[in-house]
Design a binder for these strands. Structure first.
Length: 431
RNA sequence: UCCCCGGUAGCUCAGUUGGCAGAGCAGCCGGCUGUUAACCGGCGGGCCGGAGGUUCGAGUCCUCCCCGGGGAGCCA
């Protein structure tokens, strides 16, 4: 008999099937025993009675949580069962019976304990749907760019230069030379977009920031795009199209997981239905201050400021044209006001913070050199980057999207650490 | 780096004015024919984060340290 996955059970009603998985939970009521089996695609309740199979009935009492097993049974529709389908069990075959109790019970646990057991925690009820949503987000990003003819190109992970400065880099030794883990693939994408026109990549980046917040990881995944001949306004439109595409794809493909997470798909769809809001940095500062959050013009927005903007608009909002002084050296200046950068941050709704940072890039050699010097960065290390402005420089723009922040928003989970299988945070390198 | 909270059974926590170390869950034993984190009865389970101090007596008070969580700054 061929094995089936639990998510396919609706197609097998009335037939006997084999389900292979793990014992999630069991209950007993004298002469009826219930085994809740998970297989990675969902949960199903098996009903075991002594008359159907005495051996299975005995096993249903004995098997501990997370025992791996094969279960044969007939699929029935039953509204009493979680998921709507139920298995009338005819046979149970243990694959592996644990000798010790599974560390993670079905009752509540503390965050520290769960994080220490992350390798087992991901088996539990809420975690699997989150990771399936993550998969759907990543697929949506790839599909979006692939449909538009973008070429996926990779940036190196081990690099010799900083993108944003040197304080947040993880240093390592590279055959006797100093090297770093990349904090962004952007500079390399600028090079590949001059070769291929429009490019993207999805990869891990590393920031040694000593941040302890629900929005930060030291290792996270970024989806970055870079497009030759694309200017600021087109860049914003591209980002908006991408974010809407992601949300609509995930809702279409993973509605059941969102519902399992008690995330209302209609709320998400409503948030991205209308054109995203767009405000300038100056307007945003006024809005933030009007909502009672203290900040001075010229400062970056803190988390409370982002939350205020988030609440004010109730949908994604672009904040554009920041003071160039507080932004990286590679951003092109606003031709109408050289104190401003041609950049934008995209703030997600519901307090999920900045999910995209992007800008039009400097395209003139002289301007780039000047801004490199102002940022006190070593010219020599950026010589190759300067070369891009020496041969056929064109206006170009790009952005980076924080995958885990998007997953957290779409899944509606409070903390980014659950949006990646094995989060790396300030004080956590295990497991 | 700074601010706040916490560390007691495998897990989640309670522990009064400083006076015998507790509960629920998990585990084990028993009961129950439709359970929904099932329920009911019983049993075992402790370096109270570590070091020092105050005291007749410290889980409780003081000092230092370690670990974890939340937030700030910074960022996606």
């Amino acid at each position: 008999m061929n094995a089936v996955y639990i998510e396919e059970l609706a197609r097998h009603v009335g037939r006997e099937v084999l389900v292979q998985g793990w014992l999630y939970n069991k209950r007993s009521s004298g002469k009826v025993r219930f085994v809740i089996v998970r297989d990675g695609t969902g949960l199903v309740q098996g009903v075991v009675t002594p008359d159907a199979d005495p051996d299975a009935f005995a096993l249903a009492e004995r098997l501990p949580q997370e025992a791996s097993l094969r279960v044969w049974g007939t699929v029935r529709v039953d509204p009493r069962a979680p998921g709507g389908h139920e298995l009338s069990v005819t046979r149970i075959e243990p694959v592996h019976i644990p000798k010790e109790p599974f560390p993670i019970g079905l009752k509540e646990h503390g965050v520290g304990f769960l994080m220490d057991h992350r390798h087992l925690w991901i088996r539990m009820r809420r975690q699997a749907p989150i990771l399936r949503v993550r998969d759907a987000v990543l697929w949506a990003i790839r599909a979006f760019f692939h449909e538009r003819g973008y070429v996926a190109t990779e940036a190196p992970i081990v690099v010799g230069t900083a993108v944003e400065g040197t304080t947040t880099l993880f240093p390592l030794e590279y055959f006797g030379q100093p090297a770093y883990l990349s904090q962004s693939g952007q500079l390399y994408l600028e090079a590949t977009c001059m070769a291929l026109g429009k490019v993207y990549w999805i990869g891990p980046v590393f920031r040694a920031e000593k941040s302890k917040t629900r929005r930060h990881l030291t290792e996270f995944w970024m989806a970055e795009a870079e497009v030759a001949f694309l200017e600021h306004d087109g860049n914003l439109q591209l980002q908006e199209d991408l974010v809407r595409y992601i949300v609509e794809s995930v809702v279409a493909e993973r509605r059941r997981d969102l519902e399992e997470l008690e995330r209302d798909p209609e709320v998400l769809l409503a948030e991205v239905a209308a054109p995203f809001a767009r405000v300038t940095y100056r307007e945003a500062v006024d809005i933030v201050r009007a909502r009672g959050v203290a900040m001075e013009p010229g400062e970056d927005f803190g988390a409370p400021g982002e939350d205020a903007l988030s609440q004010h608009f109730g949908r994604p909002v672009f904040v554009e044209r920041f003071p160039a002084r507080i932004k990286p050296f590679y951003m092109k200046r606003d031709p109408e006001n050289p104190d401003l950068a041609l950049n934008a941050d995209l703030i997600a709704p519901e307090g999920y913070g900045e999910i995209i940072g992007g800008s039009q890039r400097v395209d003139s050699e002289e301007e780039l050199l000047r801004q490199l010097c102002e940022a006190n960065l070593p010219e020599e290390a950026y010589r190759w980057y300067m070369d891009l402005r020496r041969w056929g420089s064109v206006p170009h723009s790009g952005f980076g999207l924080g995958v885990e922040r998007v997953v957290a928003w779409v899944a509606g989970i409070p903390h980014i650490r659950e949006a990646i299988p094995f989060p790396r945070t300030l004080d956590r390198l295990y497991p």
